[in-house]
Design a protein around this nucleic acid. Sequence first.
DNA 1: CGTTCAAAAGTCATCATACAACAATCCAAT
DNA 2: ATTGGATTGTTGTATGATGACTTTTGAACG
Lengths: 257, 257
Amino acid sequence: MSDAAPDLRVERKPKLSETVVAAIRRQLQAGEILPGHKLPTEGQLTETFGVSRTVIREALAKLAADGLVEPRQGAGVFVTEHISTVFGALAADMGAKDSVALNVLEVRLAVEIESAGLAAIRRNAAQEAAIQEAFFEFERLLLDSQPTGPADLAFHRAIASATNNPFYVEMLDVLGRRAIPCDVTSPWSTELVQSDDYQRGLQREHLVILNAITAGDAEAAREAMRAHLGASQQRYRERLQARQAYYANSVKAAAGE
Amino acid sequence: MSDAAPDLRVERKPKLSETVVAAIRRQLQAGEILPGHKLPTEGQLTETFGVSRTVIREALAKLAADGLVEPRQGAGVFVTEHISTVFGALAADMGAKDSVALNVLEVRLAVEIESAGLAAIRRNAAQEAAIQEAFFEFERLLLDSQPTGPADLAFHRAIASATNNPFYVEMLDVLGRRAIPCDVTSPWSTELVQSDDYQRGLQREHLVILNAITAGDAEAAREAMRAHLGASQQRYRERLQARQAYYANSVKAAAGE
DNA sequence: CGTTCAAAAGTCATCATACAACAATCCAAT
DNA sequence: ATTGGATTGTTGTATGATGACTTTTGAACG
């Protein structure tokens, strides 16, 4: 035995219960079943998913372990009040204003900084591999001059995931979707986001983070992430000003002559 | 709305799988089975614990969900290379629900640390006064031997408010309601929370934070807040362990003699 | 002797069924 | 109208069987 060649490849076939977990997770996140309400019974889920009750139960156990649902014997399985729901409602009303977006980005900054520190300490081999994978994916896309947004997001998610605290991931999902400036597809952002310089800069900062995490240095990881997101914040602010100036000119142009 | 009374009281009867999870966790923590090695087969565990294979599988699924073990079809269930650190040992000692609370507390930690740093930079005079006010209120209540919980909360809220980013406050409200250990009304917490030593310790830590903020030193404020909440986390963890020991004894007493 | 390959044994993954424990509901008797 | 028990729905646990995958064994072959 010994060198069993851990084989970091992550292609293993998904267990049935995992697919069920993913499906139910999606439904919960989409708000198809509201907090406090009851899930379909195990029997019903058995039918809808076409798997045995064993698999359903395993999936529910996993969801319960993450605190998403709470089974009560004799009554049913209920959706717990969850952070994301609160923030979902909270974040719903703030897509409009950019100053708000900046504030949210700032909260995300707090979460991600700590996230990086924890990841440096707690990551396991597979999680570290996932982070590196996202990093190299970014690199590859950059060389191909393809949009790097998804890889950037994957990088951050991998780090959040490496904290082994599911709430960090959830938090990032909720905050990120609204505040991540990297993958917004707006007319004024494309030319900036797609510039090579910009993306090279991002990747440089990513590298520092990655190194700190692989080195297991929490303090350095936090600092690197702080620098990265601080810079992002700054870039976003500049872009905002540029946009405002643009609009101001438009208005002036439209009014003046 | 609602206040459906999440009711952190933990009086529910433990499921069989949970006792099995606890037992195996203990063994793992004690190092009776080393990382990389194989656990007894499901059949063997069935015999040693005197429960059905269903229960064993559910327990293993839970352990796998926490990343402590990794089942490989056809081969066996193996102990994962430990995510070094406290976390493994930490997660090893507690039931699912408690770990959820701790995870939320951890997110709150991230938010509050950054919050302190921003408060140190951005606070205005009135906000600084509000923080001090909460601090002295705590002091006063302490001398009067009155419950200090509200003042503690006010202190943290004042800091969040001093960031001038309303989302930090909302964040704290949402997270705090779930994870603040100060105001839980459980039999085992009262004597601890109300002890003068405990509260004196809190206040000492508060003072360090306050000084850093008034000095405008963001770095120091963050460090102080990190120390404060880290200590809180530690205290919470200890209380959980005490509680579990309590339950273990109850069970032993009820069963043994 | 060393290598290769197929069969066999061991083990987890899933399925199907049944019963026990508990909770919510309904209904009759008071 | 209230109480109390019976009924039903749901989760918790037990049991047995089958499929899929991994490891080991051992024989055949060079």
